[in-house]
């Protein structure tokens, strides 16, 4: 209940386990990968939130990111390689030594995909 096992859609080998709250439709924790962070979701003009329940970005040990959505108490969460509309996330490009924010994880300077 509340746990979903996922595989990184990029490398198809790294395993992840995402847990949702047993009673509420809320993200609880994620096992696996390098890190996760909430997506930045636009709520209106000049209004953004970082709320994991709106989706999270996960960096797999293979170096690529993917996204997990739909933290429901009763149904499994889903993973995808594309963010939903109105969302973005920050990442750091070590090659360009600079952070960037984008709706896909492509460094605007060197076009490296993360």
């Amino acid at each position: 209940m509340g746990d979903t096992e996922l595989v990184c859609p990029h490398c198809n080998s790294q395993k992840f386990k995402v847990s949702t709250d047993k009673n509420r439709d809320e993200f609880k924790k994620l096992k696996g990968g390098n890190y996760w962070k909430p997506l930045i979701t636009e709520k209106g003009d000049d209004n953004w939130v970082e709320d994991p329940n709106e989706g999270i970005a996960v960096q797999c040990k293979c170096g690529r990111h993917f996204f997990i959505y739909d933290f429901k108490a009763s149904t499994p969460a889903s993973s995808t390689t594309t963010m939903r509309e109105g969302q973005s996330v920050a990442a750091f490009c070590p090659k360009c030594q600079a952070a960037f924010v984008g709706s896909d994880l492509t460094c605007p300077t060197c076009s490296q995909q993360y």
């Binding site: 909430p38 953004w48 939130v49 970082e50 920050a90 750091f92 070590p94 952070a99 924010v101």
Partner: peptide
């Protein structure tokens, strides 16, 4: 939870 793309970018710079 209150954020902005720019804030996220700054935080990312500082994290790294």
């Amino acid at each position: 939870s209150v954020s902005s793309p720019m804030l996220a970018q700054y935080i990312e710079e500082i994290r790294n």
